[in-house]
Design a protein around this nucleic acid. Sequence first.
DNA 1: GCCGCGATTTAGATCGATCTAAAAGCTAAA
DNA 2: TTTAGCTTTTAGATCGATCTAAATCGCGGC
Lengths: 342, 342
Amino acid sequence: MGEKSARQTRPTLMDVAKKAGVSRATASLVVRKSPLVGAETRAAVEAAMIDVGYVYNVGAAGMRAARSRTIGVIIPNLSNPFFGVLLAGIDRIVDGAGLATFIAHSGESPAKQDGFVTRMREHGVDGLIVCPAAGTGDDFVPRLKRWGMPVVEALRTVGGGAVDYAGMDQRGGMDGAVARLAELGHDRVGFVTANLYHSAHDERLVAFRAAMARHGLQAVTEIEIAPTHAEAAALAARMAGAADAPTAWICHNDVIGLGLHWGFSDHGVVPGRDVSLIGFDNVAETDLVRPGLASVATEPGEIGVLAARLLLRRIETPDADVEILTVPTHFVERASVGAVRG
Amino acid sequence: MGEKSARQTRPTLMDVAKKAGVSRATASLVVRKSPLVGAETRAAVEAAMIDVGYVYNVGAAGMRAARSRTIGVIIPNLSNPFFGVLLAGIDRIVDGAGLATFIAHSGESPAKQDGFVTRMREHGVDGLIVCPAAGTGDDFVPRLKRWGMPVVEALRTVGGGAVDYAGMDQRGGMDGAVARLAELGHDRVGFVTANLYHSAHDERLVAFRAAMARHGLQAVTEIEIAPTHAEAAALAARMAGAADAPTAWICHNDVIGLGLHWGFSDHGVVPGRDVSLIGFDNVAETDLVRPGLASVATEPGEIGVLAARLLLRRIETPDADVEILTVPTHFVERASVGAVRG
DNA sequence: GCCGCGATTTAGATCGATCTAAAAGCTAAA
DNA sequence: TTTAGCTTTTAGATCGATCTAAATCGCGGC
């Protein structure tokens, strides 16, 4: 207080230049690490920068250079740790490349998502990584491309358009899961899917049907519920006493899988003995329940890394060929899976 | 392709002004919703904006106006869903105020955290919400304030300096937990804390001791471990057979609590019957394990909302009095807690 | 008809960097 | 000594908005 009456104003490149006895342009070359400046000039400017406490102004720089050194990420649901890990993977690569990340939480709402896209455009982000909210319209990505925005889709894709994509190969893990069930003698297998419609939703369902057909099993039931622990537990309660219920269940994700586990256990149906359960995503909690929940492992962190790399490449070379990257998935067996009771 | 050979260039306020037949300055007043412009002029400009497909350039605006309409958030660990919920709370308020959020993941590393602070300053964020990484030095916040950066601490605080803070009142929930244990006849209670040193770590320990003293109980053991499921399970394995082990455990967080639950269960020590367990944070998973893990409920989303409000206020009025906000916590009983075995 | 006053509108400077194109320095060849 | 050809440095325009201070427009009162 009172030390300076004027609102404090940060030193600019001009101040640095003056201090170092060079021109603004030369100082600018130094901050950009251009090879054009002489060694002693560079040293003098760098010393001056420290001396005056210079802080680079990315905004001003980006204005002239027409790039913000900023990207945007739109995530549908931050309270799912799965997306937290994805985000951490993205951040690692993006930060390593010297860019900063805007984050937005769509809450699975396409309307909110559109709002964020506008905001990101206003902020002039250099590119966007999107995991589209369930129910996103087919025109979403084409519109972004029409605006010249570099885009990468992660985990989910909409509209089937030609756009870079980083996701997972659902089939490998699904096949492993179904194969194991077949081996254990299960022939009536149910699938529980979520009522959020997006590409991963469909892919897992399709992968399930394909794997079942491949192993000559019949899908007794495909049920769709809201992906919450409580809804899944309620479903298990209904199934616990049902005649001709499947002897094994595969679930769209671990939230549903853990919920079924809860519901069955509470009704005296022991997973791994009376019913077999398999989830998807292999989150940390699958190890905590007794018996442990078998699950298909996916690598959200790795997918984040790939998505970020794709985006950086797209920003660098906007006309590069579209690339689709998938990381493999694999079945992780735990005690929730057992031989069919006979 | 080929429609325009020139690299596409976004329309500017100048284009809008020309289209509407007004000056750049007037158009600027319209986008800023100034009451100075006449109704029909405003309408004409707004029509022109839509007509030319105008996108506001926040960067350019911020340059002159010396504010970026941007804030930064530094989070220690995105894979913990607790922080995801915090982030969602922050985002809701910040977005509502028309600002965008930069997010950074320190991974509990003070060095990475410093790097992010630099990046945020370079981007000219209007303020910062920080949940300081464990081990952050006492000078961290004072340095930020010296730079004139509006700061709010969330969940954790370092250096005890005068700075806005949004956190939780650990004592209420802790007291509820200890009171219930006393009522059930436990008199030997252990506490498991984490080896990550930050204010919340200390607060919970202090709250534990105070509550124990208040209820005339003795703290048999205070153990410090790495906060992972596996470490906690290993601890439980060691304790399962130990003579004079506590009859009840309270844990720094649910990760440790769930890990103990796992370890005890695997060694035939049944939570709620042979030992009582209480966690902290009341994450969704406490309901999934059998018996359910009792826990102290905290509200990360609510804390995020408060932190965001504090920051917006601080940005608005930099000289406002420092405010410390805490949301109450409360004990949530589940079957992992039971009467001491006689 | 002229003046004053509130309501609108505007020209021009400005924010802090980058870009372009040209100037200045330097060495070595003619 | 001059010149060609580097390397290094620089002046000045520029990005797209906001700000300041002044100009312009209407309109009622003298």
